[in-house]
Amino acid sequence: MYDSIVRTVVPVIVGVLLGQAARIGLDLPAGAVTEVVTVVTTGAYYAVARLVEQRWPALGRVLLSAGLSRRAPVYAPPR
C-alpha cells in the first residue's frame, strides 16, 4: 500500500509545484488557472514518468516515488 500511495502523491506534488511556478510573473486569476495547470501538469508528468519507467526502471522509480520505494505497487484482484 505504501508504494501506491507514494507513487500517487509524488506526481501530485510535482504538478502543484510546476503549476505554481507557471503562475510566477503572470497576471492570472489564481484559483481556476492553478487548478487546471496543476491537473494537466500532474497527468502529463505521470504519463511521461510511466513511459520512462518502462524503458529505464531505476529512473522511473525516482520520478514516480522520489526514490522512496523500490518496487512498483502490486494490486491483488478482488476476492
Rank of each mutant, 00 (worst) to 15 (best):
M1C: 08
Y2G: 05
Y2D: 09
D3M: 04
D3A: 13
S4M: 04
S4E: 01
S4L: 05
I5V: 14
I5F: 08
V6F: 03
V6I: 14
T8F: 13
T8R: 03
V9F: 11
V10C: 02
P11M: 01
P11D: 07
V12P: 00
I13F: 11
I13D: 09
V14Q: 02
V14G: 00
G15A: 08
G15D: 01
G15C: 08
V16D: 05
V16W: 03
L18R: 04
L18S: 06
G19C: 09
G19F: 03
G19Q: 07
A21E: 13
A21Y: 14
A22N: 09
R23N: 13
R23K: 15
I24S: 11
I24G: 07
I24P: 02
G25H: 09
L26E: 08
L26G: 10
D27V: 10
D27L: 09
D27N: 12
L28T: 07
L28F: 10
P29K: 02
P29C: 03
P29E: 04
A30N: 14
G31V: 09
G31R: 07
G31E: 09
G31P: 05
G31L: 11
A32C: 06
A32R: 03
V33A: 05
T34V: 11
E35S: 13
E35H: 12
E35D: 14
V36T: 14
V36A: 14
V36C: 13
V37A: 05
V37C: 07
T38D: 02
T38L: 07
T38P: 03
T38F: 08
T38E: 06
V39I: 15
V39Y: 13
V39H: 09
V40P: 01
V40R: 03
V40H: 06
T41E: 06
T42A: 06
T42V: 12
T42C: 08
G43I: 06
G43H: 04
G43E: 05
A44K: 06
A44W: 07
Y45V: 08
Y45G: 03
Y45E: 02
Y46S: 05
A47Q: 11
A47G: 07
V48D: 10
V48K: 02
A49Q: 00
A49C: 12
A49F: 02
A49K: 00
R50I: 07
L51Y: 10
L51G: 10
L51S: 14
L51H: 14
V52D: 00
V52F: 02
V52E: 02
Q54F: 08
Q54M: 13
Q54R: 15
Q54P: 03
R55V: 11
R55N: 10
R55S: 11
W56K: 14
W56N: 14
P57H: 09
P57I: 02
P57C: 12
A58G: 13
A58S: 15
A58C: 09
R61K: 15
R61W: 05
R61Q: 14
V62M: 14
L63N: 02
L64Y: 04
L64P: 01
S65F: 00
A66L: 15
A66E: 09
A66T: 07
A66D: 11
A66M: 14
G67Y: 10
G67T: 12
G67Q: 11
G67H: 13
L68S: 02
S69Q: 09
S69W: 01
R70W: 12
R71C: 10
A72V: 01
A72F: 03
P73L: 04
P73V: 01
P73Y: 02
V74A: 13
V74H: 15
Y75S: 12
A76E: 13
P78M: 11
R79Y: 12
